[in-house]
């Protein structure tokens, strides 16, 4: 199925280490994501999920490998590559001295979103994330969850083909988690791609089409969730995951 679809993200032989002669934080990671699918990155703490995501977001350099976003190499054509991507970091880094609406306008300016489109998109995003009047407040006054919401809203204002999220459900209340999950499904149905990391096995198993398992910086398995369930209706994802975790 995936062969016929557009390749949105291609990671090939990615290697990264933090100290010059230190151990590899991630070693030889390779995977692809296609239009219209949701992909999960799973692994224990320190497995290399965030490092992988930071490399493909262009936040940190890497030693070996290739990352292509919509055919653009993140190292050689970083601007073109990043234009097709929206990202939400695990620490919800936001510009605290801006109000929510200023923050979204800033992102819209950076991604060249026309004014008439911004308004419509903002209205839709508000329906999902329900920030209400708080959008007029300084981000420094936001709670953890509200910061998470505003970061998600800003990262979607340009309708990226690839939406990358590091631990997206952390800090969200159950109602918003549900709304975000529904939104993620509809976003993918619209032909976009989502790649996210998580520790919540249930969420990953429920949402993702494919899952990549990382362990100690190495890619240990790739699971096609639908195929697995088709092969074995009693497939227990948690057992499967813990088998790899030892």
């Amino acid at each position: 199925m995936s062969e016929t679809k557009e390749e949105i993200l291609k990671v090939e032989g990615l290697c990264k280490r933090y100290a010059k002669k230190g151990d590899w934080a991630i070693a030889d990671i390779s995977f692809s994501c296609y239009a219209g699918e949701m992909v999960g990155l799973l692994g224990h703490n320190g497995a290399g999920k965030s490092t992988t995501l930071k490399c493909l977001e262009g936040m940190i350099p890497y030693e070996k490998g290739e990352i292509l976003i919509c055919g653009n190499d993140i190292r050689k054509k970083p601007i073109a590559a990043k234009r097709n991507m929206g990202f939400v970091t695990d620490n919800h880094a936001a510009f605290l001295k801006m109000t929510g609406i200023q923050f979204i306008n800033f992102y819209a300016d950076i991604y060249h979103v026309p004014a008439e489109v911004r308004q419509k998109r903002l209205e839709k995003l508000e329906e999902v994330f329900c920030l209400g009047d708080a959008i007029q407040n300084l981000i420094s006054s936001y709670s953890h969850g509200m910061r998470q919401k505003i970061c998600m809203m800003a990262s979607l204002i340009h309708r990226p083909k690839l939406w990358v999220l590091d631990e997206p459900m952390t800090g969200l209340d159950p109602r918003t988690q549900d709304a975000v999950q529904k939104f993620m499904r509809s976003y993918v149905k619209g032909g976009n791609t989502i790649l996210f990391s998580s520790h919540t096995l249930g969420v990953v198993a429920k949402l993702c089409d494919r899952i990549f398992l990382l362990r100690k910086g190495q890619q240990v398995d790739s699971i096609n969730v639908k195929e697995k369930y088709a092969e074995d209706p009693n497939f227990n994802f948690e057992e499967y995951f813990f088998k790899y975790e030892g």
Partner: peptide
């Protein structure tokens, strides 16, 4: 978390250069 500040009006601005 009583840090509070509100700006008047909620509007999307006309696009500006990067």
């Amino acid at each position: 978390g009583t840090d509070y500040f509100r700006r008047k009006g909620k509007k999307v601005k006309a696009p500006k250069s990067t």
